[in-house]
């Protein structure tokens, strides 16, 4: 007569089964984000991210010279305005506002080449988004049109449209 294993054996059998099942199991995955290769190979650029930044307090000397330049512009003395802005640039050579201001003065003096150069440099050192970005590319568009470069003016217009401020990522 075939009798079932004794309760002791049953327990052992179930225990062994459980152990085997346990051996097949994998530990739960760590609950971190899925690291794709593409993200891992990217290195951080050594500078602050582009976008909205808190601008440091402006050098009062630069402010004074910019005011004087604006006054000169109001009096239609563009040469003097340019001179004052250059003085300011010697103090802060990489101030994007100054560079754009000088670009606009150059444009009003009909120096299209320099207007484009200064606006381009302002873009390089500036936030590359927002109001200043728009002013940069607007100047470049107009300068290129004046110089007769239709195609590159078109390209510049596309860059102008891309100057929208990106909303900061929110979770």
């Amino acid at each position: 007569m075939n009798r079932l294993p004794t309760p002791f054996l049953k327990t052992v059998f179930i225990a062994l089964l459980a152990c085997m099942l346990a051996a097949c199991a994998t530990p739960p995955r760590a609950p971190v984000e899925d690291d794709t290769v593409a993200e891992r190979v990217r290195a951080p650029a050594p500078e602050e991210p582009r976008g909205l930044q808190i601008r440091p307090l402006r050098n009062p000397a630069v402010t004074e010279l910019t005011e004087a330049a604006r006054q000169a512009e109001d009096e239609d003395d563009l040469e003097r305005a340019a001179l004052l802005l250059e003085r300011a640039l010697r103090i802060e050579p990489r101030d994007p506002e100054l560079l754009q201001h000088l670009a606009e003065v150059s444009f009003n003096q009909q120096d299209w080449e320099q207007a484009e150069s200064h606006a381009s440099r302002s873009f390089d050192v500036g936030p590359r988004v927002g109001e200043l970005c728009r002013r940069n590319w607007q100047t470049i568009v107009m300068a290129r049109e004046q110089m007769g470069y239709r195609h590159s003016a078109e390209l510049a217009r596309e860059r102008l449209d891309a100057c929208r401020v990106e909303p900061p990522p929110r979770f």
Binding site: V41, R42, A43, A45, E47, V125, R128
Partner: peptide, 12 residues
């Protein structure tokens, strides 16, 4: 700070 052109990307 250096102002890197836009099309520059960094990789390990």
């Amino acid at each position: 700070p250096t102002h890197w052109p836009e099309s520059i990307e960094w990789y390990w």
